[in-house]
Amino acid sequence: MAHETATALAPDAPASPRSAKPLQGHSPVTPGKVAMWFFLATEVMFFTGLIGTYIVLRAGSPPTAYSNLFPPASAKAERPGLVGLRIEQPGDVEAVARLIRPLYEAHGAYYEGHDLEHLIEQGHAITPGLEPEKTEALAAQLRSLGATVEEESLHTYAWPLPYDTHTNPLSIDLTAVNTFILICSSVTMVLALAAIQRGDASRMRLWLLATIVIGSVFLGVQVYEYRELMFGHVYPPGISADGHFRPSSSLFASCFFTMTGFHGAHVAGGIISLLILFLTALKPGRYTQAHHSPIELVGLYWHFVDLVWIILFTVVYLI
């Protein structure tokens, strides 16, 4: 395409932005860069669709949408004064499960298989909120089965709070580390570009490989996180009615999986592009000091994906 891009340098052509710019000393404006930046602008609008949806749905969420005692979006959480029981020491797990399972089901929380037993064993089980006098009767029954219980009054939230294990299953520690990892992949990417700008092709290949590896680690951690949320753990009813955090569990879950999922898909796309770059870069002389725009363009995309994650980590996990 080089022949076409040269056109506007011919006479009478001050109109083209490219013809004037290199002389002023900015980076040269190439069709590839223009297209990539426009593509990134479309990506901004796409993520605005998703993140904006999350922001307004969260802002408009009614104050009783989430609670420590009831599944998400349960109207029961609107009644103040209810009390639940945290089962600290399970005693006879089977019997306790048999006793409290109907209570959960009456509130729309259906546990499958041995999920409820696991929840009780881990000490995460909280019974749904009841009138205080009914709770006392239940506490007596549970104690007779050898369990130690603690009363817990109803707390409601418009949205799950960070670090609140009753309503929010996300691990900030794990994701903070993962954010660290993605930022590292961004710097290796820019170092790959800097290397080829100095003409050092072998160093560039190394940095590209490093970016691919670190990016894959990020993606791997995200897959692990998804697996734990969706299948690995059993969560108390305040997080999900069936004990697993899945896209259908709550509006919070829907937003979380859609945003991070599409970000993850973009990371996967970036890794594939980087892999193609790396494989083509194995051919000596494919990318040189004078000719390396594919590295630059994929780099732009990769940093943009990193930038989106910086925002997602803040608005989804930390806030």
């Binding site: 900015h26 980076s27 930046w37 901004v44 732009l300 940093h303 943009f304």
Partner: peptide, 24 residues
């Protein structure tokens, strides 16, 4: 920081802003 340094916005002409500001 990512945009200015890693994405080279600091080194580009103003045209990048002309694309991204309307999007914002």
């Amino acid at each position: 920081l990512v945009a200015l340094y890693f994405m080279h916005v600091k080194f580009e002409g103003r045209w990048v802003y002309a694309i991204m500001v309307p999007a914002g």
